[in-house]
Design a protein around this nucleic acid. Sequence first.
RNA 1: GCGGGGGUAGCCAAGUCAGGUCAAAGGCGCCAGACUCAAGAUCUGGUCCCGUAGGGGUUCGGGGGUUCAAAUCCCUCCCCCCGCACCA
Length: 962
Amino acid sequence: MVDWREIDAKWQRAWSEAKLFCAEPNGRPKFFITVAYPYVSGPMHIGHARTYTVPDVIARYKRMRGFNVLFPMAYHFTGTPLVGAAKRVKRRDPEFVRILTKVYGVREEDLPKFEDPRYFANYFARESELSYRKGMHLLGYSIDWRREFTTIDEAYSKFVTWQYHKLMDAGLVSKGKHPVKWCPSCGNPVTDHDLLEGEGVDINEFTLLKYRLGDYVLPAATLRPETVFGVTNLWLNPNVDYVVAEVDGEKWVVSKEAVEKLRNQGFKVGRVEKLRESLIGKDVEVPMTYKKVPILPAEFVDPKNASGVVGSVPSHAPYDYVALLELQRRPELLEPYGVDPERVRKIKPVSVIQLQGFGESPAIDVVEREGISDQRDPKLEDATSEVYLAEFSRGTMRDWIPKYAGMKVSIAKERVRGDLIAAGEGATMYEFSKKPVICRCGAECSVRLVEDQWFLNYSDEAWKEKARECLGRMHLVPPETRAQFEHTIEWLREWPCTRRIGMGTPAPWDPNWIIESLSDSTIYMAYYTISHILKEVDPAKLSDEVFDYVLLGEGDVESVSRSSGVELETLKRMREEAGYWYPLDYRMSASELIPNHLTFHIFHHVAIFPPDLWPRGIVSFGMVVLEGRKMSSSKGNIIPINDAIREYGADVVRLYLMSVAEPWQDLDWRTMEVDAMVRHLERFYSHAREVIELPKMERPELTLWDRWMLSRLQGHLREATEALEKFETRKALQHAFFLMLQDLRRYLGLARGESKAWVLKYVLDRWVRMLAPFVPHVCEEIWHQMGMEGFVSTAPWPEVESEYVDKEAEFVEEYLRSVIDDVRGILRATKMKAPRRACFYVAGGWRRDAYRKVLEQVRKGKVDLGALISWGREELDVPPEELAGFFKAAAKEVKRMPEGWVEVLSESDIGELEILTDARDFIRDQIGAERVDVFTMDDPRRYDPRGRAKLALPFRPAIYVE
RNA sequence: GCGGGGGUAGCCAAGUCAGGUCAAAGGCGCCAGACUCAAGAUCUGGUCCCGUAGGGGUUCGGGGGUUCAAAUCCCUCCCCCCGCACCA
C-alpha cells in the first residue's frame, strides 16, 4: 500500500515553494492554454476534474518540451443561478438546505451567510473543502495561481466595460425588442429549463393584417403575409366571443383571449368591450389591395391562437380551401348569418404563388390528393405544413402581382410584411408554435415582448465574415467539430447580451442592465495575461485607454500613464505580458458550448483584436457520466473531488480520467475500473522502486531481449509523443502506460543476465518522464528517489533514440510468440494438458536460399511460382515436386506476413536455430512442457517419431509434441 | 424538424479517412493454473463456435451493392446520444 496522499502533498508543496508554474515572459517560445472557468454554484466533482486535467496534462507536456507555458484559472460568478441559489437559502427551501448542510457540509448556523450570492459563490470557488480551488490544488494542477480572479472583481468589470465600449463603437451592439416566454404568475421570463410542459416550443412571428370595416379593424393573423393578394374572404368563428378593444387608438375586433397577449406585446390596449353584433356576412376591406371581401363563418378558427381572426387564401391554405368548399356545398350553413349563398358559390381561389410540380393552386392539389373534405380533419395540419414549406422554399410570386412579381416567396414574405407595417396596415404578434406552455409554478405562459433589450449583432455580415476567416485558420480538436462551428457562425443571430438581474458588470451605456454571463466571458483569456499585475492597481484607474494600450498596443504609454494615473512601469510590464502571451494557443471547453460560448469567443476576438492576435485552436470535450448515468447534484449522483482524492489520490484519478476516453469522447466513471487503476499504478511504482535499488553500471553488451525492450520503448515513446501532439491522452497512455507495462512484464520473463539492470534503469529514466504529465506526483517521487536533480515536471521530454530501434529484435520476439501460439493451438486441439516433450525442427539448407527468392518476389509485389520453380531446377539439386510444394507453402506464409517483417527478413540474417535453442527454457515455461528440443529438419540424430520435420518452413518450424 | 456525433465480442473501447498484416489492440469482468496455511496482491494462460497437430466455421446495428478481397467503400433502413438561444 502506498500512501498516495502523502506523496501528493509533498510534491504539491515543493512545486508551490519553487514557484514552478508561475509563468513570466522570457526568451523561450510560449504556449498559452486556457479552459473555461467553472461556474461556481456547487462543489467541484469528477466531471470537472476531467475538464481541467486535460489542459494540465497538455501544459505539463508542453513545459517538458521546452515551452514557457501559461495555464491560468479563474471563477465565473456572473449571472442568475447563484443569485437564485442564494434566494433559495433565504427562503430556506428545505430540499436545498438539506443538500447544503448534509451533502456540502455547510453548518446550520452559517446558512444566513449563504443568503449573499457572493458568499455562496466564494464558498464553492475557493473557501470550502469542496471548492474548485481546493480540488485543483489537490489534483496537482500546474496553474499559475497568482492570476486567479473572479468575474465580479472590479478590475474585471473594467475590462468588460472596455470590451463593450469597443463593441458599441464598432456598431455591434444595438437596442431592440425581443419576444420571450413569460410566466405571468412569476413575472419573469422563463427558459425551457423552467417549464413543466412545452419544452422546445418555438415562438412564431405572426403578421397582423388590418382588415377594415368602418371604424373596426379586424387584425387577421398570418404567418404568410405575402398571400394577402390571394385573399377571398375573412374567417370568424361563430362560436367564439369576440371583443372590441381599443388598441393603439384603433378599434380592434379580436378574440377575448387575444387581448391579454396584445397587452403583453407592447400594444397600448384601452377599453375592451364585448362585440354585440355579429360581423359575419359583412364586407371588409383587404389591406394593400383594398378589395372588398365578405366575412364568413369557420369553425377551425381557434380563438386561443394569435388574434382569433383569420384571412382566407384558399389557393394556398388547405384549411381555407376546405372551409370554403364546405360552405359552397352546404349553403344552409350560411343561413343563420344572412349570407347570400350565391355570392359564396362564386368565390374562386386566387393563385398568387407559382410552384414547380404543382398546379394553379397547391393547396387544392394537396387537399384533393389527400381526399380531405372536413375542416376538422387532422390531416389538414400536415397538408398545411407541406404547402407552406414547399412554397416558402421553392415558390415565386406570380407575374400579375404588383411590385413583388417574380420574387421568391421567402423574400416577398419579408418585403410584404415590411411594407404593410410601414404603411400602418400591419403589425406583429407573437404566438407559441405549440400549446400549452406551462411554467413550473403551474401557470400558463404567454409571449411577452421585452422592450429596450440590448443585442450583439451576430447577424452582421462583415462580422460573420471575419469569424469565418478566423475559424478557417484555427486548429480544431477533434476536427469533426468544424462543421458545427461553421453552422453556428451562419445560424447565430442577434443575441440579447443584457439581463435585469444577476451578478456581473453593468452595461456601460445603461447601468440598469447587467452584461449577461455568456457575453462577459468571451475574451477574458487576454485578461489572464495581466490579471496578477492588475491586483496592484487601483481599479478606478483602469480606463479604456489603459486596456487599449496594454492589450492592443495602442496609444502612447506615457500619456496613458499620465491620464489614467497607472504607473508607467506597471503599464509597461502589463504590455509586455500581453504582447508575449497573446494570441491564445488553445481554448478548451465542453463541446456543448460550441453553439454559444466557443463561437462567441471567436466573434469577440475578431471584433476587438487584430488578426495576428486571433485565437489559434479549440479543443472540445465530451461529457462525463457516472456508472453510465447522468450526474446530478440534486440527486446526489456526483463524486466530489475531495472524496475521490481521499479514496484514490490525485494520480489515480488523473490516470483514470485520461486513460478511459479521449478528451472529446464521453467518459464513464466506473468505480470498479478506478479500483483496478490503483493496482496498475502501484505496480508501476513498486517496479520503479525495484529498479532504483539495482546497482548502477556502465552500458553493457546488449542481448537480443535487451534490444527488444529498448526498441519497444522507442516505439511507445514515439506513439505517445505523436498522440499528445494531437491531444489524444488515451492513446498516449495506451502506449506510455499499459503497453509499456505489458512489454516490461514480457521482458522480465525473457531477459537473463547482467545487462538487465542497465536496461531497466535506462527504461525507467524515460518512462518516468513519459508519465510525468499524467501522474506527476508519483513521477516526481520516483525522479527524486532516482537521485535526479530538479523536478521531473520541468525535465526534458524524452527523445526517441533511433539507434535503439531494432526491427530484428522485434521480429524475433513475435516469431517466438507465434511459435508458442502454434504449440498452444496443438495442445488445445489434442486436449493435451502438459506435454512431456516438445520438439522443433528448423528448416535449413536449400530452403533458406529458396525462401529468400520468395521474399524477393513478395517484396516486388508479384509471386510467380513458375519462375521460382524453374530457378530452383537450375540452381538446386532438389526433386521438382518437392520444390513446387515448398514454394507454394512458403509463398502462402510470406504473403500473410505483415509487410514490415518481409523487409526485416530480407535484409537481415536471423539465426532461427539459435533463437529457439536460446529460448528453450522460456518456451518450456510458457507451454508447461517437461522438455524442449530443437533440431534442424535434416539432423540425422533428431527425435521425430511422427515424421513431422519435413513440414518445416523457414520461420515456421515444424513441431512435434507428445 | 434542423445541425453534429455514434452503433465493433459479457461491458468499455481501438480499428473505419488511405479495403488485404482483423477473430479484431488495450482495459474491466469472468474462468483456469502458479505462488500462498489461506485470502488479497502478483505472475501465466484462456475468454464467438467447432476441432486428438499448429486447422476450419460464423461475426463488427439490419438489408442490398462494388471488389479476387469489406468492420473498413457505395446505397438504403433502424436505433442511440448531444445542441437548437436569452441559459450556465
